[in-house]
């Protein structure tokens, strides 16, 4: 019995009609009928088309007038979250690449200028069309950071083993019922290993089912551990670059007992403000607005001074601390109460 191959619906959005025609005709021919091509010369036209046709893949030009590719990606994420998205650009920059990938683009590709270029991109897009994302938490790891995963595991009172690996080292963080209980990196263990894992500048990580490490080397609260790890990372970032022959810098380990703290509320949002996780936020919309306000004010501050990209705002309060983070990838709001603070 013969089977009929599925025909993929592919929409190209670009304000240059000549490019649009060239790319759809070329890819249509290369696909030998496996792709049904659709075109739109503006984001508006594309959104109208999406109302009536279900697409498998949308390929968007980043530099469109009025509503650019990044804004269009945000709308697609809200209204058509299941569609695979790719951005094309004639002027690739690292900043634009990060922005597009943070807003849900699966690929960020430079516009082809040669026949070989068209062929390479066709192969990439076909690979993407036939790729089935993994289900569950593993599937979203590629879009979140190590800190976020630890926060989510701890806030969710989960038990798991987070394995982190780069070219030189492999580390493990053991989380049991939302508490970080043990960490190993090479021959080290405990808080020193945990902080070194979070200070790694690159690598891959994956979440595995919990297995008991047999020992408990970490007692502190996860919020404190993450804050300490952030402080250690800051200190390392501030240190001058060592010569290649110099020994690796020693990472300081905090010996004093951590204060008793409790998380009062948490909100984790995508970069466009869409909530991913919230815990005990009394007024979600207010917190979302606050994160937006902080992000805007940070942009104003950075406009006039060479401060670099905004990371976070820390608010020291009489009874605790609030941290609002706004990066191109996501926004996080955590309010922590210091239980040992004087009333």
């Amino acid at each position: 019995m013969s089977t009929v191959a599925r025909q993929y619906q592919v929409l190209f959005v670009d304000d240059e009609p000549d490019f649009l025609q060239a790319v759809t005709e070329t890819f249509g021919a290369m696909s030998e009928g496996r792709w049904q091509m659709h075109r739109a010369t503006s984001a508006d036209a594309a959104l109208n088309l999406l109302k009536s046709r279900k697409m498998d893949l949308v390929v968007v030009d980043v530099n469109m007038p009025m509503l650019d590719g990044v804004q269009f990606l945000r709308i697609l994420n809200r209204k058509h979250a299941g569609i695979k998205k790719v951005t094309l650009t004639g002027y690739a920059t690292e900043e634009k690449r990060s922005e597009c990938l943070a807003n849900g683009a699966e690929l960020f590709i430079e516009k082809p200028r040669t026949a070989q270029g068209f062929k390479s991109i066709f192969v990439m897009l076909e690979e993407l069309l036939t790729w089935t994302p993994q289900q569950g938490f593993q599937g979203m790891l590629r879009q979140v950071g190590l800190n976020d995963v630890i926060q989510m595991e701890c806030l969710g009172r989960n038990s798991s083993v987070l394995e982190v690996q780069n070219q030189q080292q492999r580390g493990r963080i053991y989380i049991e019922d939302g508490n970080i209980i043990h960490a190993t990196l090479g021959g080290e263990q405990g808080e020193a290993a945990f902080q070194k894992i979070l200070a790694l500048s690159g690598g891959a990580f994956g979440l595995h089912p919990f297995e008991s490490p047999g020992v408990r080397t970490i007692e502190g609260s996860w919020e404190f551990l993450l804050m300490e790890a952030a402080r250690v990372r800051d200190e390392l970032a501030a240190q001058p670059v060592e010569e290649p022959t110099s020994p690796a810098p020693e990472i300081p380990v905090v010996q004093e007992a951590p204060p008793e703290v409790a998380v009062a509320e948490t909100l984790i949002c995508k970069a466009d403000g869409e909530p991913l996780y919230q815990w005990q936020c009394e007024t979600l919309s207010d917190r979302q607005e606050l994160l937006q306000t902080i992000s805007q004010q940070a942009a104003l501050l950075a406009k006039g001074l060479p401060l670099g990209q905004f990371d976070r705002l820390e608010i020291q309060q009489a009874n605790g601390r609030t941290i609002a983070q706004a990066t191109p990838e996501r926004r996080v709001f955590v309010r922590v109460l210091n239980l040992t603070a004087a009333p």
Partner: peptide, 11 residues
């Protein structure tokens, strides 16, 4: 709060 810290990449 008592005081705030705005943290950027360089400052």
């Amino acid at each position: 709060g008592k005081w705030v810290t705005w943290k950027f990449a360089h400052a």
